[in-house]
Design a protein around this nucleic acid. Structure first.
Lengths: 123, 123, 123, 123
DNA sequence: GTGGTCTAGACCACA
DNA sequence: GTGGTCTAGACCACG
């Protein structure tokens, strides 16, 4: 679990943790069933409050990315295929598409970028 | 300027305004040079405070989507080609790509969705 | 009188006019005794309000850069050597020196830049 | 943090704060990593509103002089060498050079003044 | 306890 | 009539 936290970012720390865990799962760096660090361990490693880590884990559980296992603590959830993207994901994506268009990217350039970012999780 | 604000959302109102203006420009509903409502008018129309609208406009100005002409108020900025997407846009997109993959969308489905959302601004 | 006005600037238009007249005099593009355009002419040429031009001229008269001549209207004032810089000038310069230092310029680089800008008015 | 505010000045209070913080950093009175007063504390100390201080800090953040650490508040940013001076700084300096020339200062006197002001931050 | 957000006013600078 | 600035509060998110 290599987390890169930017304490000067406008994105809350718990959300940075949430985002990086999602990306790690998507990239296959974290695999279903794998244990995550304990709240205490991760908090100490990053120099942040345990409450902050707890909040990130809670959010991830709520979104279905993590599950709590009685024996082994917090583990990566099994993939939920066919779940379909959440409303937040689609709305966020719509906004990014608009921003890319206004930044001057053609539809081809945009889709190429999307493919590249999607496939970061492939190999 | 039809804005739909969700006062219960955790997204700040000024950011909701910002996002909807970006999308309106991307869709061509707002064209370069077109005047936006005065901060007072928009505030009254939406039942919110002047300062909140002001903040949204400030953000949009800073991001280059709007310019304030000292003679005629706030207008849509000329499109800035070759600007390239901001770091925030790319990072946000990367996150969405990860979420879509984990939601079970194939790369083809994902790119199809991206194309559809991109082309909302095309017609 | 070639004025380049930026209507999107945060600097008020009357102040932009004032600044450009000062620089034109410093560069020798406007010489003592030379007539300036009438308020009406300059306002029309720039597509701005006469009040705005009037305010700029008033400011310049007050600072001693222009004088009103009974016969020929508004003309460039005779140079006031030994007047010494105004408090505003020195305070503004102090601020710029601080900004340059913090932007990473050495004292030599800073003085070289100052010399270059000063001598724009020389030849 | 000794701020001297002039409530009668035409320079907005938030800009006076901005300028004095820049000068304090340039003089080394504020060093990188050092914490600034909270917006509430500074507002109370100066007898002004929180929002006014907030605006000054926002501006300073945007210009890269401050960063807000989500854990510990607002601190002086690390110096950014190679940043180069902003357009505003150079334009402002050009104007001051013109004013000094018209006030009767020779190039030597001007550079001597610049050096003195630059080196206020040296010792 | 920190900054972020928002309100409901007010006064002023600018054009 | 436009945006810019400022006030004196309030509530909330974050850590």
């Amino acid at each position: 679990m290599l987390l890169k936290l930017d304490f000067a970012s406008e994105v809350p720390i718990y959300m940075q943790i949430r985002n990086q865990v999602v990306l790690a799962v998507a990239r296959g760096e974290l695999v279903p069933g794998e244990r995550l660090p304990t709240i205490r361990a991760l908090a100490e490693e990053c120099g942040i409050n345990m409450m902050t880590v707890n909040r990130a884990y809670q959010q991830l559980r709520q979104e279905g990315y993590l599950v709590t296992d009685r024996r082994s603590g917090t583990v990566v959830a099994a993939p939920r295929r066919h779940a379909g993207p959440s409303k937040e994901t689609v709305e966020g994506l719509r906004l990014r598409m608009g921003e890319l268009r206004l930044a001057g990217l053609s539809v081809e350039e945009t889709l190429e970028l999307c493919r590249k970012l999607y496939e970061e999780g492939t190999e």
